[in-house]
Amino acid sequence: MNLFRLAGDMTHLFSIIVLLLKIHATKSCSGISLKTQELYVIVFLTRYLDLFTRFVSLYNTVMKIVFIGTSFAIVWYMRYHKVVKQTYNKDEDTFKHYFLLLPCFVLALLLHNEFTTMDVLWTFSLYLEAVAILPQLVLLQQSRNIDNLTGNYVFFLGAYRGLYVLNWIYRYFLQDHRARWIPWISGLVQTALYADFFYYYILSWKKHEKLKLPA
């Protein structure tokens, strides 16, 4: 494992901690898209099916369990916690997330490495993760007031993807010289989706102003 990969995983973990902290400490999930969070539950469940069939390392196993557990915890908070659920911007979280599932699944059926249940679902999880942030970005665009924790959450989530791209470059040229087209292309698409957000995030940070995305 190289430093970019580790840094990527840590920013991913950190983004989740920031989100859980926001929800737990402020008892509010305003500005957070439940649809994106539900998609992440599906992403982790379909990607980590090999949790009990293939051991990579203790690090991988622990991280997989943490990602599955925290994604469930976030969805639970937003749906069932009696205070938190009242802060959910249901009317603004309008993205039809179910429409992302079918195209990703069809694409995974068409483009994969091995035609096995596990491999197709693993591929599906990569395609779905690439677009899972869309409901969140749409919600941010509709929000007048983006609080710092929400902005930071999305920032760290985007940073994780950017670091994974650097990890792939490093791996390809300096470690194993293997092409991994499916994770690469979906990862690049995913990173590109953050470009606009990053632009306004950095702009607001430079100007010491509150983050606001143009409609």
């Binding site: 995983d9 090999d50 293939r54 990579v56 390392s57 990602f67 091995e114 994770p183």
Partner: peptide
């Protein structure tokens, strides 16, 4: 395979 190699990532 490509798949096996890529699956050590999260």
């Amino acid at each position: 395979t490509e798949t096996q190699a890529a699956k050590d990532e999260l």
